[in-house]
Amino acid sequence: MNPHDEEDGEWRDPVIVWGAPRSGVHLLAAVLDAHPALVSGPELSFVSMMVSRWRGIDRILDQRRAGKGVSRAQARSAFRAALRELLTPLLARTGKRCFVYHWVGGHVELDAFGELFPEARFIILLRDPRDVVRSLLHCKWRCSRAGRASGEHDLGAAAGLWVDSMKTALDLAPGLERRNRLMWLRYEDLCTRSNEAMLRLGAFLGEVPPEPAVAPGAAALVTMSMEQAYPPLRSGAIGAGQVGVWRRLRAEDIATVEGITASQRTRLGYY
C-alpha cells in the first residue's frame, strides 16, 4: 500500500519513462498517452529539478537529524504535494488516473524519483547505440544539455552521450529492480514485436495492454518543448523502419561507435 494514500487521496504515483536520446522515449510516452488510464504531456525539465532539489534537501535534513523545524517526512510530503498540485489539473481534465512522466537523456536521479514516489513504476528504454548515433546524426542532433551547437555532426559525442546515459541507468537500476519497479524495454522489441511488448507493459503497469500505435495529437504533445527542438514523431502504427539503420553508416564510423560503446553495448546485449 502506498504510505501516502491518506494524504494523497486518489493520487497515484507516476509512471516514469526514461532513456538515452533517440531511444523511443517520446514514442512510448505517446503510446501510453492513448491508454484509458494513463496520460502524458510534454517533457518538464523543472520536475526533474524539483526531484533533485528534494533529494538535496532530504540529505541536509538527514545530516541535521535533531534539527528544529522541518522534518524529512514533512519535506517529502511538501514536495509530493507541490508536484501533485501541478499534475492534478491534467488528470482532472482527461479523467485519467496516472501521469506518465518522460525524460530524455541527461543526468537523471531515477533513484530520487523512486524515493519520492515509492509506488512509481519505471520504464527504461534501450536501443542499439549504433542506431542511436545514426539517428542523432540523421536528425541534425541538437543537444543543449550536452552543450552541443545546433546541427553539429559529432559521431564521438553522440556515442559518448549514449554511454553516459546507459552508465546512469546501469548504476541506478539495481535499486529499482530489487523492488520489481523497473522494466527494461528494448526499442527493437517495441518496434518489431509490438503486441508482445504491449502485453509486457500492461502486465508491468497492472493495466490493460496499450495499443501499439501513436495518435496524431499525442505525437505532437509529447515532443513539445520550451528547451529542445525535438524531431517530429510519426503517428500511426508502430513500425520497424528505424531498426538496424546503422548499417547505412560508413564502415569506419561503425567501428568508431562500436569502439566507444563496446563496454555498455555488450553488457546490454547489443553485439
Binding site: 523543472f46 524539483m50 489539473p89 481534465r93
Partner: peptide
C-alpha cells in the same frame, strides 16, 4: 525552481491545464 517552471508557462497552460 519556480522561475524555471514559470518559463514553461505557455507549455503548462496548453498541455497541463495549468
Amino acid at each position: 525552481l519556480w522561475t524555471c517552471a514559470d518559463r514553461s508557462g505557455p507549455l503548462l497552460e496548453t498541455a497541463y491545464a495549468l
